[in-house]
Write a protein that binds this DNA or RNA. Sequence first.
DNA 1: TTTTCTGACTGGTATAGACAACTAGTCATA
DNA 2: TATGACTAGTTGTCTATACCAGTCAGAAAA
Lengths: 239, 239
Amino acid sequence: MIDKTSPMPLYFQIEEAIKQKIDKGEWEAETMIPSEREFSLNYEVSRMTVRQAINNLVNDGYLTRRKGKGTFVSAKKIEQKLLGLTSFTEDMKSRGYKPASRLISFQKTTAENRLAKALEIEEGQEIYEIKRVRLANDIPMAFETTYVPVDLLELNESHIKEGSLYSEVENAGFVIDYATQSLEASISREAESEILEITKGAAVLLIKRQTYLTTGRPLELVHSVYRGDRYKFMIDMKR
Amino acid sequence: MIDKTSPMPLYFQIEEAIKQKIDKGEWEAETMIPSEREFSLNYEVSRMTVRQAINNLVNDGYLTRRKGKGTFVSAKKIEQKLLGLTSFTEDMKSRGYKPASRLISFQKTTAENRLAKALEIEEGQEIYEIKRVRLANDIPMAFETTYVPVDLLELNESHIKEGSLYSEVENAGFVIDYATQSLEASISREAESEILEITKGAAVLLIKRQTYLTTGRPLELVHSVYRGDRYKFMIDMKR
DNA sequence: TTTTCTGACTGGTATAGACAACTAGTCATA
DNA sequence: TATGACTAGTTGTCTATACCAGTCAGAAAA
């Protein structure tokens, strides 16, 4: 169950093992999980290592500790604390789905008027155009088109396929500051219908996002078409 | 600075000390804070104790760790930037439209299972059901149904027609704490189509909002159907 | 001059053990 | 029948130590 020779940290393996039991329903809400000492004995790791695993799961909302009593499976799976800027990947993970992404096309093109304005560059300047299908548990959820100015970031297909755009941005030393998003309901057009595997005229959620760096420069413009029947956008707001 | 005789945990004291330096601006964003070993020597505590303090601050978004480099003050400033809880009225005003509201029906009814659960009351308890059409510049924008537990608030038609629900809530001495919203795209049904003056099957935006008081009790459940062709939902997010 | 390597720094992972604080049940006693 | 002391379990806090894994600058070698 726990492989001490694996390059994966022990605490991470324990985390996954616990998460699996929860996701599988073996441990339901309010179930008390084994004590830290028990884990420690069973897996032959120190109690501190077990604590690290459990702490992470507590932070992620999977577990709740009660001093003197034990550690219990949380009632509800983390709903969504989408006051922050989360990527599709993070978003889906937090909802318990397996996120994936299929690259449809990746190319350089030039910014026409509207795009140039949004990205605050000159008309005709080079931009990347990245078209992707976003999947959750292998079901198409959204069709996404991203535009990024070429002069901002060096990108190639493998960056997009393997890493995320945001990790690339961080590697380049940029820090994302804020974003504005607009959401609207619409009806799917033919092109999208095919990719999203829905009928033409089905309900879709159009999300446009513009992301800004701390330098004040726009990083990207993202147009997403989400399936209306499968995707709900959640927001928590504090007054 | 650190009081070993205090009943407050050492890691907590260290946490507070670091937070203070950040809040006071002594350590600005991107500043590297002392290394774990340094803290350990200065405060005469073990490195693990320092790590616990720093870990908590990393989880809270105050700090960022970079392996091999150090620990840095986050740029994102935890600041819970709230895109406030705005009512339809405030929302439309800020967009430059003349908001109005037409009351369709106002009645007492009893909460069925799903509603009771959401409002955290017993099944069969009395609730107000308020149905309204929301207009902007006299054009129908949304069809809204609001549910409020009767035992929470005394309401009558004139309250709704003249004032807003929220001002009534404030008068009663309640304070709104937060809300969760979900947005999804859908297709209009017959009943809504007529009221919103759109064709059946047109795109609509379904917004469900649940509002909570500072007491932790749910105040209301709101189901809104917005015209997809006229309404866009905007969000600003800070990372 | 350029390249390679080394060492000293950073945080990351893991161990073993100690004692404190809290919970819930048991059991003897007033 | 209560009450209070004890006990065995839990998580919480903390120490001291060890080694691993990136990062970076400067010394050594080419």
